[in-house]
Write a protein that binds this DNA or RNA. Sequence first.
DNA 1: CCGTATCCACCATGATACTG
DNA 2: CAGTATCATGGTGGATACGG
Lengths: 118, 118
Amino acid sequence: MSKIKENSTHQANKNSLGEICAEVYAINLLSGQWTLAICCHLFEGRLRFGELKKRIPQITERMLTLQLRKMEEDGLVTRTVYPEVPPRVEYELTESTHELKPIFQQLQAWGDRHKARL
Amino acid sequence: MSKIKENSTHQANKNSLGEICAEVYAINLLSGQWTLAICCHLFEGRLRFGELKKRIPQITERMLTLQLRKMEEDGLVTRTVYPEVPPRVEYELTESTHELKPIFQQLQAWGDRHKARL
DNA sequence: CCGTATCCACCATGATACTG
DNA sequence: CAGTATCATGGTGGATACGG
């Protein structure tokens, strides 16, 4: 269990900054390679595994699984399995994650402004 | 030149999301392993290379150099070399980066709330 | 003091094939 | 449909030593 360990990347920030720079925690959660892609699609509503795959064509099934599992572990998404045949699994953002939307929008605005200055 | 290429991580998000998820651009800039640590220390003011090193004890000189170069390339910091002996180099956040501070604070608040819910 | 150069290990990701 | 298993790889960062 827990092949996906604590996300080795960025650990050092936590240690080196402690309370001074706690937003590191947030960035750590969000900086998985596909995390934001998945979030963006789930902002619109719950989606099935296959639907996510269709919307993010470059992702492999393996990576989609791994990312979703990690996000579940991190409390970013909920996973609902319907005991049907054929199997159906739906993913949905948690309340917490929905609260990120306004922050994302500001970040996007900042990114646009910053890009324009370069 | 340019050993530090475009930060291979997260490229796929850009491609797969395009305009839909432009905040990926911002996260990409900020998700270097030491980027946030450096930002946090520079929020207080300009610092010399050695001062940064002292404040982030775990970082190696190599990584500090690489990160600062990348951040310079990305327009996040400015690097000022004083032609003195012994050499003196100071780093400072750009205007853009200073504008991130309120967003960081919200992110930190979100992180704290989220952590508390788990 | 402020870096570069070199070597190396590991982990995250990709590709492919298979399954309940 | 929604995954797992397995193998391969290369990028990213650590350690160490050296240089202007």
